[in-house]
Design a binder for these strands. Sequence first.
RNA 1: GGGAGUGUUCCCGAGCGGCCAAAGGGGGCAGACUGUAAAUCUGUUGUCUUACGACUACGAUGGUUCGAAUCCAUCCGCUCCCA
Length: 406
Amino acid sequence: MTVFEELKRRGLVAQTTNEEAIQKALDNDRVTFYIGFDATADSLHVGHFLQILIIKRLQMAGHRPIVLLGTGTTMVGDPSGKTDMRKMLTVDQINYNAECFRKQMEKFIDFSPEKCIVARNGDWLSNLNYIQLLRDVGVHFSVNRMLSAECYKSRMEKGLTFLEFNYMIMQSYDFLHLFRTHNNTMELGGDDQWSNILGGVELVRRAEGKEVFGMTFNLLTNSEGNKMGKTEKGAVWLDREKMPPYEFFQYWRNVGDNDVIKCLKFLTFLPIEEIEAMETWEGAQLNRAKEILAFELTKMVHSEEDAQKSLDAARALFVSGADSEHMPSSEIMLTDGIINIVELLKATGLAPSNGEARRLIQQGGIMVDDEKVDDIAANISAAAFGKGYVVIKKGKKVFHKAILKA
RNA sequence: GGGAGUGUUCCCGAGCGGCCAAAGGGGGCAGACUGUAAAUCUGUUGUCUUACGACUACGAUGGUUCGAAUCCAUCCGCUCCCA
């Protein structure tokens, strides 16, 4: 099976500018392609991870990736599919973020010079001459067509600044620049990048008279069409400081039934045949598929050891109810040898306010060492800390270890 | 630049000068049912308080009033129409 077939079979390919030609090139030639990453945060998240895996797949097939760090484009901010303007970042922040990205990527992509190029578009975008750019590049863009692009739709109602409107031009210029300097002939990206990619393909054709290619990949969405990789607290980060391995593991352990197979296809290197065999799984067996997904991903993003620890911890907690050392924990102090349950919940951060703590208790959501506590006046005495700690369970999934401070 | 709107709690959104901590929906949290899933049903969702209640909140600042999310003035942000 060729890479392209593999990408297709995994359901990754969304749109292409010329499928036949792309397939031919990927099957027969050594293609130089690029994917851009805007440095909007100090860690990559799963959305990026999906793109990185695609780079990896193509790199393993012998193609040469250009990893483009958007140190220039991040100065502008991509409005595609956004309802609001992004907050502006300083140059220092952007450069710092880009460096974080590069470091994280080293783990997945082979950065040896002959196999990969790392570029920063700030290197060429920052020094552009305005008038010159308008004459060379701007002349090839139709404002009418740009405005009718699907990705600006929501912004046509809420407003689009001239700053952001130029994003497409910047990204298109990247393609032209990389074509000229590295003979880069293909741009890949998430499906939300389709308009921007088309802009680049057309710019190269108009400016150079050469056909280059664009291809987008399906975004990681759940069966309801919502973007995956978001939690109430924010994105699912790859950085262990921003999201500990156990939490990362749990995110995937808890995906919906209808999304497991897709995640396995998109985000793991498990053989496609193996994944397709899982499509018939149901119930408990499907639950097992989630475990595989969580394990594989944690292993790739963190380490096999982290994956194993998370799996053990999860099983200990959910299956046998036993204690585990990987639980989030905090130190607490007693006053006169006791602590009120409401105080305890606040001290551990399980409840942000007294009211919230009371509600949790009154609604029966709190267990201390497997005993339900439903009285807000209850006190936990020093005797309960026989082991040096107590395990507090909030709801069904949140465990916390409160360690008695000596 | 001229004109018309608009800004409400995590989000959307309703809101009569007192009965407004503010309808409704979404989201969150908890309970039931389950498989650490989904769907469904129930409760809950500003802070402090066992409670009574107190306090802080409807873009900002002033004002009118016994009393303002609601009326007035100025300012700030956003949207639309005209230029």
